[in-house]
């Protein structure tokens, strides 16, 4: 899927408090925040940028419960239905004895499944080429990317806003 090219304004910052402030100020002006790149998860930044809360916990719950339910059924089927074996006279369906394996498999499917869902949903795949707005965003710089929707957007105003928050560099590019 080829996206329509758009003009992006980028401000580069050195400190988390600057990028949080600039992001919040840009959002208050009604500018669309494409993304904010940071070398570590900055607390308060997703809220400042207005990004939604994560849906990942729901995937985790669903996968964990599915895994636990399937293994419970499987243990019952293997121990009591397909080939019941008398182990020290214990009942065929020894549900309490199935709890440890149910728990372990529930955790396993929740953990591995959620990680797989996360990686696939964000296209984080082995060998994928990283697209970074600036080579130092994985090191010590924060990049705020604002979309320039039309001619009413003033790059000068954006540059002025970034400068107010100690931006070290500003740039415009097509994406």
């Amino acid at each position: 899927m080829k996206k329509r090219s758009r003009r992006i304004f980028m401000g580069l910052f050195e400190r988390e408090e600057d990028v949080i402030g600039a992001t919040r100020a840009a959002r208050e002006r009604g500018w669309r925040i494409v993304d904010v790149y940071a070398p570590y998860p900055v607390h308060g930044l997703p809220e400042a940028a207005g990004f939604a809360r994560s849906w990942v916990p729901w995937a985790c719950l669903a996968l964990g419960l599915t895994g636990a339910a399937l293994i419970t059924w499987f243990q019952f089927w293997a121990s009591a239905v397909t080939w019941p074996i008398n182990v020290a006279g214990k009942p065929w369906n020894s549900l309490p004895a199935f709890i440890p394996v149910t728990f372990e498999v529930g955790v396993l499917s929740a953990g591995l499944g959620t990680t797989a869902v996360f990686l696939l949903a964000f296209g984080l795949l082995p060998g994928k080429t990283a697209v970074t707005p600036h080579p130092r965003v994985t090191d010590d710089r924060f990049a705020l990317l604002i979309e320039e929707p039309d001619a009413t957007f003033s790059a000068a105003a954006a540059a002025e806003l970034c400068a107010r928050f100690n931006a070290v560099e500003t740039e415009e590019f097509e994406s």
């Binding site: 790149y37 070398p39 930044l45 939604a52 929740a110 990680t115 996360f118 795949l125 994928k128």
Partner: peptide, 26 residues
């Protein structure tokens, strides 16, 4: 190859932190 195209996007960090907390909770 092993960094999976990671670029430090906050849109990803939001979900990454959620995943990390979930793995810790599991």
């Amino acid at each position: 190859f092993f960094s999976l195209g990671w670029n430090g996007s906050t849109r990803t960090w939001v979900h990454y932190e959620s995943l990390y907390t979930l793995l810790a909770a599991l």
